[in-house]
Design a protein around this nucleic acid. Structure first.
Lengths: 253, 253
DNA sequence: GCCGAACCGTAACGTACGGTACGGTTGACG
DNA sequence: CGTCAACCGTACCGTACGTTACGGTTCGGC
């Protein structure tokens, strides 16, 4: 046999298998819950027997489909030799924009729907996969950026995980839960760009150091406070020396 | 007949029907996907015929169950005669704490799972109900607080919807999607309290006016910037007059 | 006590779908 | 050309579950 069901979990699917997985993906996006083995076989023009030989069972097919989609969106990790406030801003906006684009895409919505429903069942591997390739992959790529920016003195935070989650919240807000619950929420590219800008500016407002603000070109983008432009300071009681040591664990982990 | 299926959508269920709905709710929380009509009838000690007479069909039962749970968590709207920075902080922290408690509860998770799965199907009434009684109900209760605080000069923002969504994002961050995708994420009450504090302080840091900061007792709670206490200002280009008129529509609606 | 409505428990029906079996076809290889 | 593995198409099986039907029980009204 070409690919055992147990092998496919680690190996790259053959082109024919990729076609089958794309068919499953398309069906998942269009029909949502109607992802039956018969339907996949019909769309992919393959026999159900082949599906079972390749993927073991329905869960195997679902799992392979989710992993296949995840492998398609994998992007190159960012590496920034020079790290200044402009580069940081651009990178954050790019991350925010990418993330908003992903979570509002039909594919992501369908995939997350399936994974959420699956997580309610006994076996919840799909949720883990989606989480691993979504939210945690994002964190893994973004944290080095944040830490590089901190090392460069541009921003300040105790814990990279907490800082990431703040950024995540400012970017995603209520978008994902709303689309998952079926609300039509079509974000145009200009809205996404604006949202990414807003989230980035808010994040920088919370975390940037004085030095970085002085040099920041887009300081006037932040317009939360509109009628009372005023100088204020935060954290007047914080002092310098304990850099890098988080004061307390973030509540997440 | 006592209650037709079409009637129950608007009327309050009888005590016996409430017991049935509670049984369905409990089953939903425990078994997740295994919410079969037989199981509900067995747990509620009623006949399936009665279920169909009361709720029409399976979707009717699901819908009634979701609506029943929603009716149980309805809380009184806040009304604050005096609005100072302490009251605002306390209210925001309360909202944040309540919301985190809700979205991490087993009931909410189970309900959202069912609604999300349902939203993938053709008929997506459950998602709308959950959204209406969750995220939108929260906004409806919180926006008057925000606007009262703005009127009192404590905070500043252009659009209440946008300000709410910022707060929402800072509070929820990645919590809901993670628990929905099956991650075990047990937040203790002290973690929730700390999170509520952090979110509130971050929100205030983004939106408070200078006057409110002067009077704020908890100014030192915000510790995002730790090693560079510095005065900086935002929105130096913003001027006063267009109060209350949002500069552009929020991307949500 | 009698009647009918509401309800319980259970059996039964129909169907959808996961999973399997099997005959027929293709194509590589000798 | 023969062989054999992979694969397609389709028929088939078993089960789970939504839905309906029906006999038996309780209970309020007369």
């Amino acid at each position: 046999m070409l690919q055992k069901a147990s092998q496919i979990e680690a190996e790259k699917p053959t082109p024919r298998q990729q076609a089958v997985l794309d068919a499953a993906l398309g069906l998942m996006v269009e029909a949502g819950d109607q992802l039956t083995m018969t339907a996949v076989a019909a769309r992919a023009s393959c026999s159900k027997e082949t599906l079972y030989k390749w993927f073991g069972d329905r869960d195997g097919l679902l799992s392979a489909t989710v992993r296949w989609q995840a492998s398609k969106v994998r992007v190159a990790p960012v590496d920034r030799a020079r790290m200044d406030i402009a580069a940081l801003t651009a990178t954050l906006e790019q991350f925010a924009s990418d993330w908003l684009t992903v979570i509002t895409s039909k594919t992501s919505i369908a995939l997350n729907r399936v994974a959420v429903a699956h997580a309610g069942s006994a076996k919840r591997g799909l949720g883990t996969i989606v989480l691993e390739n979504g939210r945690f992959a994002l964190a893994k790529r973004l944290k080095p950026v944040l830490e590089a920016a901190r090392d460069a003195g541009l921003i300040a935070f105790d814990d990279a995980e907490t800082a990431f989650r703040t950024f995540f919240g400012l970017v995603a807000r209520d978008v994902q839960i709303r689309v998952l619950l079926g609300e039509k929420l079509k974000l145009s590219t200009v809205e996404i760009t604006a949202d990414a800008r807003r989230a980035t500016q808010q994040f920088l407002a919370l975390h940037e150091t004085g030095a970085s603000f002085e040099a920041r070109p887009g300081g006037s983008h932040l317009r939360m406070r509109k009628d009372v432009p005023v100088a204020y300071q935060v954290s007047r009681s914080a002092r310098a020396p304990d850099k890098g040591k988080p004061r307390r664990r973030p509540p997440s982990s």
